[in-house]
Design a protein around this nucleic acid. Structure first.
Lengths: 203, 203
DNA sequence: ATTGACATGAGACAAATGCCTCATTAGAAT
DNA sequence: ATTCTAATGAGGCATTTGTCTCATGTCAAT
């Protein structure tokens, strides 16, 4: 593995970027490129690719990762509503769309994230999974925070996180086998139900 | 691949079982056995292993699959309650426990299920993912079916399926990074909220 | 008991994976 | 401009993966 934070940052960033872009490009075209393909497309030697990524799976997963999910600020830029349900539906819409638009990458990413803890030596620290979901949920609820108690808010955010992320879309597709429209409908209903339940004084 | 339903069913089932058992045994011991290891342990030639499973991933995933989740009948055997919330919590408890008890296998299984649609030739049929969740949810709601309209029932079942399965446990662990107790608490709250929302006349 | 279809074992093969070393190159600091 | 070090390229190596062929063994039906 190449050094992390000294020496030649530019060069390192460039080759890293080239590798990820090549991987993304090849995946967009067709199935599962080999590390050799990626390295060749990035005009980088195979050894160098292994210096940046522990294995081909990690490379592909990370290349799948730069699906740009809008952040909270841009998502709520022109939005004036205070209604948490409306704002949550905006979040769900954005995430849902990102998933269906980049479904193969999202699936690969999820698979990698889910098994990462297995392939590292036991007793070693598990790198935290990157998380775009909670900040968005939090931002959606921000204007209405006063409506909930602190514990209820936390509980609500966690429950919502079970519904709005990648996994929800995948479950709807693979387990429930329903189409996008119905999946969206189910989630919207659930979101509203949870928010309203959290609004109640207690329990 | 070996024939599916003619010839010598006994022999086929035996070797298939031997392979799966060997894979399960080796996985229980340590990390990720190679197909060669599995074949050797099953006292079967490598070629034969490939005749039963398309690749090592499928073998390991299927070997992880025989985690016995109780079916609806045994789960509700001594149960007299009609309350759907209580019954749903029983289901959630059972599934949650099955996941945490066999976490590595469940993760492998999920990863395989999630990416299976990617590695098959495009345009080909996607084999349905096996589903233990909906029947259990359905059984939990069965005594209370009259309380819901048909559309509301469907919607409720789908929403619940987003919360109670494997994915929910994984999200709680990896994304929310909360412990089992809190995960259970969040899910119980969400389940109750959804059921009660579905009870209301409409919307 | 014999036959015929079916399952298996043995081994060859190309490709991919991950790891390694050593020489060369390119960037950063002086 | 020179120097030193970090990054790279080239290639080798052992292992694994997945596919194929052909000979052999074995089950089941007659």
């Amino acid at each position: 593995m190449v050094a992390a934070n000294k020496g030649r940052p530019h060069q390192r960033l460039r080759t890293r970027k080239d590798l990820l872009q090549a991987a993304a490009r090849l995946m967009r075209q067709g199935g599962k490129p080999s590390l050799e393909d990626v390295a060749a497309d990035a005009m980088v030697s195979r050894a160098t690719a292994y210096r940046y990524f522990p294995d081909i799976g990690a490379l592909l997963a990370e290349a799948s990762l730069d699906v740009d999910v809008p952040d909270a600020e841009t998502l709520f830029a022109g939005e004036t509503t205070q209604d948490p349900v409306v704002r949550l539906e905006i979040v769900d819409q954005a995430l849902h769309q990102a998933v269906v638009e980049h479904e193969p990458q999202m699936r690969r990413m999820l698979a990698h994230a889910v098994t990462r803890s297995l392939d590292i030596p036991p007793g070693d620290a598990i790198p935290p999974r990157q998380n775009r979901r909670l900040p968005l949920i939090d931002a959606a609820l921000a204007p209405a925070r006063a409506q909930f108690g602190p514990a209820a808010l936390r509980r609500l955010e966690y429950a919502l996180a079970l519904i709005v992320g990648t996994e929800g879309v995948i479950v709807a597709k693979d387990v429930l086998r329903i189409n996008d429209a119905e999946a969206r409908r189910v989630k919207r209903w659930a979101i509203r139900a949870l928010v309203e339940a959290a609004r109640k004084p207690n329990r």
